[in-house]
């Protein structure tokens, strides 16, 4: 399969990338290419120009800034999965990145491309939602920040302003003592998430849950925060029954739909099963 013809340019700075997008209405950014090139090969995307940002050095890397973990947009899934800072401070993100596709895909795909593409079955959106991600974005109007809340508008549709480049994604570090995880039911053929759950929680010494985050990807038209699950847990004493009852609300906040592989009812059921598994991992003692 061969994409339709296009022009190609490499840019060295984010400013050049923005200018190239503005000057060429049919242009698209190219990062790792692992969402865009497959679409172009099937001619589901036919950009007239690719603006390759993969050589922009400053868009790579992970660093801590105040209470946030900042991840350069071009940082690959593999780099995130193996990064010591990520593994220490946000294990859920490292786990999610390590579950993306396969070894070859993780060598190429980037966090910026993953979240810009906004495939509803992608893994990273669940983690981004659970930890209040904020995008640093450069556009024609200059630098701005875009919060994750309200970012995912529909399958492959986001609130990212036109002709703009995500330079970094920052995630809010949870309070110390929080445990976090990402669990996933991969589609047996594609490997994408049929359901993926990011969860984080902290339990006080007296057994009361004083911090909890749960977000779900894969099951719905857009990934979502499972607010109803969080509400059922926050301020409560951990118990087996509590976890089960809370997990029963896993699909409440999503707009869940069925497809050829999994019916709506089955997906709702999977949401509860995987939210429960994630909660058991972060709430079990020892």
């Amino acid at each position: 399969m061969i994409p339709s013809a296009f022009a190609y340019e490499r840019v060295q700075t984010v400013e050049q990338a923005v200018r190239a997008l503005q000057a060429n209405p049919g242009a698209k950014l190219l990062a790792g290419g692992h969402s865009l090139i497959p679409l172009m090969k099937m001619r589901l995307a036919t950009p007239t120009r690719l603006v390759d940002i993969s050589g922009i050095r400053e868009l790579r890397g992970v660093w801590k800034k105040d209470d946030r973990l900042v991840i350069g947009a071009l940082t690959t899934h593999r780099e995130i999965a193996t990064d010591r800072v990520v593994r220490t401070h946000l294990p859920a993100l490292a786990e999610a990145a390590s579950r993306v596709g396969d070894l070859q895909v993780r060598n190429r795909g980037t966090i910026g491309g993953n979240l810009a593409h906004a495939d509803p079955s992608s893994d990273l959106p669940a983690v981004a939602l659970a930890f209040d991600a904020v995008f640093d974005v450069l556009g024609p109007e200059g630098m701005q920040t875009v919060p994750i809340d309200g970012y995912f508008l529909g399958p492959l549709v986001t609130a990212l302003p036109e002709n703009s480049v995500i330079t970094a994604v920052s995630l809010k570090l949870p309070p110390s003592g929080t445990r976090s995880t990402y669990v996933k039911y991969p589609h047996p053929a594609s490997g994408y998430a049929v359901v993926g759950v990011a969860a984080a929680a902290r339990v006080e010494p007296d057994g009361v849950i004083d911090f909890v985050r749960v977000a779900v990807t894969g099951a719905g038209d857009v990934p979502y925060r499972a607010q109803a699950v969080e509400d059922a847990l926050l301020g409560q004493h951990v118990s087996d029954d509590l976890i089960r009852e809370a997990a029963a609300h896993a699909a409440d906040d999503g707009s869940i739909s069925g497809d050829l592989f999994a019916s709506e009812a089955y997906r709702r059921h999977l949401c509860s099963v995987y939210v429960e598994r994630a909660l058991r991992k972060v709430l079990s003692r020892g």
Binding site: G33, H34, A189
Partner: peptide, 22 residues
């Protein structure tokens, strides 16, 4: 379609699917 890996080569030392790289 980026699934089978038969096209895998090393690009700057890393395994990549060469059907998904320009």
């Amino acid at each position: 379609t980026s699934q089978c890996g038969a096209c895998t080569v090393l690009l700057n030392g890393e395994a990549v699917k060469s059907c998904t790289v320009l």
